[in-house]
């Protein structure tokens, strides 16, 4: 059971990253969190992104949730918005895929093609 003091310390540490909710300039990672997403396993994916961002101390990136994106069979879905670039939609995301997406796409600007919706649709024609 954490004391208020310990919670305050955690709050100060995460304040910088949470402040970015108001900042439009940074990267945005949006996880689908409607009934379809939750049933498919989006909760650990969202928390996975938050943990990974915090672990790597990535600045200018916020993680948020959205409702049903529209293609429920491909949930959990994650959209990555980088300023100046087209959004990338990842489908059937699992907590194990989070590391690669953060490392290769968020940090190194190289979307993980085989996790994207385009690749998935082409493969499952």
């Amino acid at each position: 059971m954490k004391s208020l003091k310990e919670l305050e310390e955690i709050r100060l540490k995460t304040l910088e990253s949470l402040n970015l909710r108001k900042d439009r300039k940074g990267n945005r990672i949006v996880v689908g969190m409607a009934t379809c997403g939750i049933a498919a396993g989006a909760r650990p994916v969202l928390l996975g992104f938050m943990t990974e961002i915090k672990k790597r101390n990535i600045q200018d990136t916020i993680v948020s949730q959205t409702g049903c994106i529209g293609v429920c069979r491909l949930e959990p879905m994650v959209e990555v918005y980088k300023p100046g670039e087209e959004k990338v939609t990842y489908v059937k995301v699992t907590p194990e895929m989070v590391g690669r997406i953060v490392a290769e796409h968020v940090v190194n600007n190289q979307p993980v093609v085989e996790y994207t919706i385009g690749y998935s649709e082409k493969r499952n024609k």
Binding site: M33, R43, P44, L46, L47, S64
Partner: peptide
Amino acid sequence: SETILTLVVC
């Protein structure tokens, strides 16, 4: 706790 955490942080 994961549910509460997700709700509070988002």
